[in-house]
Every structure is written in structure tokens, then in C-alpha cells.
Design a protein around this nucleic acid. Structure first.
Lengths: 215, 215
DNA sequence: TAGATTGTTAATCGATTAACAATC
DNA sequence: TAGATTGTTAATCGATTAACAATC
């Protein structure tokens, strides 16, 4: 079965399509053309059609796309038709904030455990999720079917914990630590580097000011 | 003064260079060649040289790059030689987590105010930063020089607050709300969409499983 | 049927990589 | 000077946009 690799650029756009289609669905829109969607999303209609056609023909000539159908198809592509059990490693501010965030649950991402090394946090519950000592991790992983591990801990600890997780069979990591994890190829890592995002912002602020002075 | 536009792809890589150079600096490395850096960062040496040359010749033939010099130059390009006053709009879990994060401060991003509509939060302090009522925002902006506004509030409120901020002269927004802000061109917006990041992860998990079954 | 709009091929644009002359 | 490595041009690759035939 020859399957062409989908480019990273396309994948990064899918969640945004999904969001817009969800909003259209909520507001009762039944069908939409690539042209109208392109207007709303400020991308070219051509790109929308190309992107979607990577996964098959979801539209119909002369009609456009059925919003509900397309929404669910993209959901399936993104793996949102399944549920995922998650744990959070590092129950500091960010870890707790993520645990408190209910919207993830609605999309099928269930946080079922949190771990930390700070004994003061142990036993504390965030939205019903218990914070456990880090040394309970191996047992917990053995007893529970976990698909995603979230790293919200200092970078010094991140790599070490990540290696342990992978040894225990974890295949997907959502990494908030400011470091690149060096893991086997079959482990999926999605990085969220907040400070790098902030630096892009300060770059653009600086550039913006320069532009204003120049013009 | 003809200045060629630097591509977004290049800008996105700069913070990562900055991070690696910072680590090299900390570990006492004085100079590095594009080749050695390419080994560590898993990018091509050619790309490193091309990227850096967008901003001028930072290296020296036969020698490589001086780590300390390059680190500071990239810092300047990213605007990290200045300080920024920030406010956080929405003092929920994520807003509080960001406020608690000390590392931003070290890089020159000072959070000096937080705002929320929930009266129960008013007066509370996060790391010394007071949470104020949202209606105090205009006065606060008039009395303080704010460069960055962080939006950690529900998407329904985000657009409305963003428009108010821009009317008060804010030119840069760090947006965590799950919505695209429609603002004038001279306003810089940097989006952090956590749920979209999570969807990319679930896409790759799904793909990974498919690959394993196929091979 | 006529009109609309997709799916898809071809053209363009931009970003990455390779190669090497310049130069420290 | 010889060796190393940049800065930069040229070649390649990939992604985006344009165009239009297919078809609902």
C-alpha cells in the first residue's frame, strides 16, 4: 500500500481547519466552499483544496464541503476519535494549570495521574487527580494504560525522566521543558517552548519599531 | 536603505540557536564551527551559515564562530537586550502559572500586572503581582508603559479585550486564547494554541501506530 | 442543462542543501 | 604557508498558488 508522506506543514494546519469547521458547525452552517472558507481563514482556497486532498476527496463539485462531515473526517485524521490517557510529570504551576484545564478532557485527553519529587505536593489533588511521588511512576505505568506523558519539569530532570518513560513503553511525549529530548525514532515528541515563543514576539516587536522609524 | 525581509522560518530557528549557544557558553566553550553546531543541533551546517548570514557575518573563516559574541548578537536580534513590561489578562490557572514563572523575568520580560473579571481573585497576589479588576485596565495602561499583553482568557472574551488593548496603544499580544485575533497590521500577535499542539501529537500517535502495523 | 466548485496538473515561488571561492 | 571554515552563489527540493478539466 503506497502512501505518500503528509508534510508537516499540512499537519500543522489541520487543527486550525478543525477549529473553524467546529465553529461553523456550532453556528449551524451546513456546507461551505473552499472559497468561502479561504475568506474566513485568510488562506488561499487552493491551499485548502490541496491540503484536504492529501486525505481523499471530501468535497463535491458544484456543492463544496459538508461542514459536519468534513469536521468529523479531520477529527479522525487528527486521532480525535479516540481517547488518550495522560500523565503529567512535574506538578508545579504549569503542570497544575494543564491539569485544571477541562477542555482537553472534552477532546478525549484524560489526565489520570500527576507526579512530582516535592514531598509537600504529595497527596494533593488537582481536579480530582492525585499527585504522586515520582518513584511510584514505574508501578503506575505498569498498572495503567498511558498513551501520553506531559513533561512540565525543569530541563535538568526532563531528559532523565523521558528516558525512564520510554523504557516503560511510553511512545508519546508532550514536552514543555526547555530542552530537546533525544529519544528513539518511534517515540513521538511534541515540543511547547514558551520562552521561544516569547522571543519570537520580542523579535517582531523590535522589527516593528524599526519599520516604523524607517518608513 | 534596502533591507531584505527575513523569512519566518529563519526567525523560528533563532531562539533554538540562542538556547544552544547559551548552553555552550555555560559549559565554557569559546568557539564553534557551523559543522560542530550542526552535529549537536541536528540541522545542516549550510542552514546555520545561511541563517546567520541574513544578519551579517558573525563568523571568521578558518576559525568558526565565537560563542559569546554570537550568543549576544542573536540576543540583540531577538530583542533580548531590552526589557519589556507585560500584563496578563485572565488570572486563571494558566495566567497564574505564567505569572509564577521566574525565567521570563530573567530574560527581561517583567510581568507587572494581572487582570480578571472574577471578583474573588481581586487583591490576590501572585509572586507579588497584584490581580486587579478588568475595569481598572484603561487607567493602568495610561499610567504604565506596557509593551506586551498576554491573553489567558476564554476565547469569547479574548477578541473584545484585544480590541480594547489595541485602542489603548498596545502593539504586541501573546495570545493563549483559542481564537484568531483580527487586529491592525502594526500589532504583533504571537499565538500559543495548546490544544492544537496536542492535536498534532495525537495525529502523530495515530500515524505511528498505523506505520507499525503496516511494516 | 447551466452554473458552481471540486480535484488535480502545471507553474511559480521560496526554502534548503550543496559546492566552492574567498579569506582568516 | 597550509589548513580550516566561513560567506555566498548555484542547484535542488518542496510547498504554495494558479489554472482548468472533470463532474456534481
Amino acid at each position: 500500500m503506497e502512501e505518500k508522506e503528509i508534510s508537516r506543514a499540512v499537519i500543522k494546519r489541520l487543527p486550525r481547519y478543525y477549529r473553524y469547521l467546529g465553529e461553523l458547525l456550532d453556528s449551524g452552517v451546513e456546507r461551505i466552499s473552499s472559497n468561502e472558507l479561504s475568506d474566513r481563514m485568510k488562506v488561499t482556497a487552493s491551499q485548502i483544496r490541496q491540503d484536504l486532498n492529501n486525505f481523499g476527496g471530501f468535497g463535491q463539485q458544484g456543492y463544496g464541503y459538508n461542514v459536519k462531515f468534513l469536521y468529523h473526517e479531520i477529527g479522525k485524521i487528527l486521532g480525535l476519535d479516540k481517547t488518550y490517557n495522560m500523565i503529567i510529570l512535574g506538578a508545579g504551576n504549569l503542570g497544575q494549570a494543564l491539569a485544571n484545564y477541562v477542555r482537553f478532557e472534552k477532546r478525549g485527553f484524560r489526565i489520570i495521574g500527576m507526579f512530582d519529587v516535592n514531598p509537600q505536593l504529595i497527596g494533593k489533588k488537582i481536579r480530582g487527580i492525585e499527585i504522586r511521588m515520582m518513584d511510584e511512576l514505574p508501578d503506575f505505568l505498569a498498572e495503567n494504560d498511558i498513551q501520553i506523558a506531559t513533561l512540565t519539569l525543569p530541563k535538568a530532570a526532563a531528559e532523565e525522566v523521558a528516558v525512564k518513560l520510554v523504557e516503560s513503553g511510553i511512545k508519546a511525549i508532550w514536552n514543555f521543558a526547555h530542552t530537546d529530548l533525544h529519544l528513539p525514532d518511534d517515540v513521538v515528541v511534541e515540543n511547547v517552548h514558551l520562552s521561544e515563543s516569547l522571543m519570537q514576539l520580542s523579535y517582531n516587536i523590535t522589527k516593528n519599531q524599526r519599520d516604523r522609524n524607517t518608513k
